[in-house]
Design a binder for these strands. Structure first.
Lengths: 195, 195
DNA sequence: ACCCGTATACTCGGCGCCGGATATACGGGA
DNA sequence: TCCCGTATATCCGGCGCCGAGTATACGGGT
């Protein structure tokens, strides 16, 4: 069986190990420090599952079993050549090929007609506020990172997210207005349904 | 245990059953016909799991077991009052509260520095083309739906997706240019790393 | 009358993911 | 010296999800 590129955590593991050999717990620490866990979901249970899967597929390999003091043994892993190839190929396809991801909000907004217009307006406005908050938080963070002298390339994913959040805020703002003023197509039947 | 709002397919089931009682296979058919499966991932295996889970939590209930001809028995389900409440509450929170969803592309682009700039440019441009294609396909679909006399509210999620895709295309276009011209912050060290 | 492709309706085994549990070591305060 | 909170490092049981499999019925062609 060929390796299935499901859990992006495996991508992070390959990337970390291509810097230097590490044991799983250290990978988690490093991801935390670098705020990578904001981009890739980190979960200790999954981490060990993923490491085992990568080992089975010979994309990484246990390189040593250390025993410092009387601590639990730690298995240090290193990336293999096949692993490096997998990392680069996976990365290319992640970037080049958009994937259907079924965002929750799309599911929600597609059924917004089930809520009375007044309720819909309220929840949409709540989201708008939440998104605006995320945007200011992101702006502050970017300011800080740039101030620390980190190059843009080091936080390019935040730049992307910022662009997406701005677009979402704009759309939400439009939809809220259209709902408030009753100009969204189909408003009349929508209102009629909820009396 | 209280019901866990994990699989959005459960949301679709509640929504469908709040129209009229159905058996699982019919839910799937209906979702297909309405192109709901483009917004909510549909999988037969998951469908039956989800229906069973909803039943356990008494959000839906088996209302009849039909037997037409010698076909396999079909269990028809109906939504309960608790189910209707759950549907509306879930819907509100889906819309009002943005959720971290870890999009694959963010993971990919965050590691773009691992690829040589030339390769990065190539894959980003491939994505740009793919996104552009999706946009034209969506535009055609919207035209068609509007032509059929469907109100905007019936395809509001496509409107949203269109806005998001446009923003993504714009960002990709910017990033491609910045990479091509070497104006993205940190470009020099990026290039140096790959010789 | 027979065949077979498609539609109908559900079932099941496996696997990946999750989150809480486990076990030891270290360090600082009373 | 004792205690306990935190850090280190991994393990494991359960459950939800997936997709391929199963079994019957219908209907059109020859």
């Amino acid at each position: 069986m060929t390796f299935k590129r499901t859990n992006p955590l495996a991508l992070a593991v390959l990337a970390l190990l291509s810097e230097r050999p590490m044991h799983p717990y250290e990978m988690a620490q490093t991801m935390r420090e670098r705020h990578q866990e904001e981009v890739i979901k980190l979960n200790y249970g999954s981490l060990y599952t993923v490491v085992e899967s990568l080992t089975r597929h010979e994309l990484i390999a246990a390189s040593a079993v250390q025993k410092a003091g009387n601590r639990p043994e730690r298995t240090v892993y290193a990336v293999t050549d096949a692993g490096t190839a997998e990392l680069h190929d996976w990365l290319r396809s992640l970037i080049a090929e958009p994937a259907r991801e079924y965002p929750r909000f799309e599911a929600g907004i597609s059924m917004v007609g089930l809520l009375p217009p007044a309720d819909a307006l309220e929840v949409v406005q709540r989201r708008e506020a939440a998104v605006a908050e995320q945007l200011t938080a992101l702006a502050v963070l970017l300011e800080k990172l740039a101030g620390m002298g980190l190059p843009q390339l080091a936080w390019i994913e935040l730049d992307y997210r910022m662009a997406m959040l701005r677009a979402e805020r704009a759309w939400l703002s439009w939809f809220a207005t259209a709902t408030r003023e009753g100009t969204v197509g189909g408003y009349d039947t929508w209102e009629d349904r909820h009396r």
